[in-house]
Simulated scan of single mutants.
Amino acid sequence: MPSLTRKMHRTGAAFRAVATVAAALAATVALSGCTRVAATAPSAARATDVQARFGAVDCREAKCIALTFDAGPSEHSARLLDILQEKHVPATFFLLGRRHIEKYPELVRRMADEGHEVASHTWTHRRLTELPPEEIRQELARTNEEIERLTGRRPTLMRPPQGRTDDTVHEISRELGLAEVLWSVTAKDYRTTDSELITRRVLAQSSRDGIILLHDLYDGTVPAVPGIIDALKQRGYVFVTVPQLLAPGKAEPGKVYRP
């Protein structure tokens, strides 16, 4: 995964620019079962302004990683939010509409109120690449509207179900003001309830500028989160939301981001 070494940092901003441009050109990804897409690395997004700072965390200097959760809220989300609050860790939540946002609106509000990034995972989790354009638009627009109604803020990020995306999805996402966010770390927690296994898988794949994909609706996932956080903090990682990971750059609608 693209990142600047300390030596390059000492050499100066010129080398940063070369490295980040190279990262953007090289980041053509193929997720399992997904269409190949051109993606922008977080380090490339940050290259837009080499002098700016974003709050207390500058991921050009800090060893950042983003914790993301798909397909909630669920019955486990309140406990997850308690853990994140206790550990002082922000996360990015890609939420489902039907039977999730509809069922747990108070948790959507709590996510936003506690400083987490609230984003879209579509309304019904259908594969967008198999739908006609109008149905893709409905899947994304309905979720946007409901999140905005609950939080007062329209989402700027979305994650396509199963990571499946194509040019039509890009175009409609651009129209709706959404950037697509994929991932670099997956525990495949939908296949196991073994929290220790989930933890080991995440730790084995994690690296700087990583985006961790978990699901807070499965029984084994939330119990694994404290150990994941503690172990990665011991390795020197700083947890950030996806927008913080990209800052001072901003996610551009219609573009795909993945380390």
Rank of each mutant, 00 (worst) to 15 (best):
K7F: 15
M8D: 15
R10Q: 13
T11H: 15
A14R: 13
F15C: 07
R16F: 13
V18I: 12
V18Y: 14
T20E: 11
A30F: 13
A30S: 13
C34D: 07
R36I: 12
V37Y: 11
V37N: 07
A38N: 10
P42S: 06
A44W: 01
A44T: 00
A47M: 03
A52S: 12
R53M: 13
V57Q: 03
V57S: 11
A62D: 09
C64S: 10
C64D: 10
A66T: 15
L67Q: 10
T68K: 04
T68N: 01
F69H: 01
F69S: 00
D70A: 10
A71F: 09
G72Q: 07
G72I: 04
E75K: 15
H76G: 05
H76W: 09
A78D: 04
R79G: 01
L81E: 04
L84W: 06
P90W: 11
F93W: 03
F94D: 02
L96I: 14
R98G: 07
R99V: 07
H100W: 12
I101S: 03
I101C: 05
L107C: 00
R110C: 08
M111V: 02
D113P: 05
G115C: 06
G115Q: 08
A119E: 11
H125K: 10
T129K: 01
R137E: 14
R137A: 12
N144E: 09
E146I: 03
E148L: 06
R149P: 05
R154V: 00
M158S: 05
M158C: 09
P161K: 02
G163D: 02
D167P: 02
V169R: 05
V169D: 03
E171N: 11
R174A: 15
L178G: 02
L178A: 04
E180Q: 13
W183A: 02
A187F: 11
D194L: 14
S195L: 02
E196K: 15
T199A: 05
R200S: 08
R200G: 00
R201S: 05
R201K: 15
G210N: 15
G210F: 12
I212A: 11
I212Q: 10
L214R: 04
G220T: 06
T221H: 03
T221N: 04
V225W: 08
V225S: 03
P226C: 07
A231G: 01
L232R: 01
K233T: 02
T241V: 09
T241D: 07
P243S: 04
A247G: 05
Y257D: 06
Y257K: 04
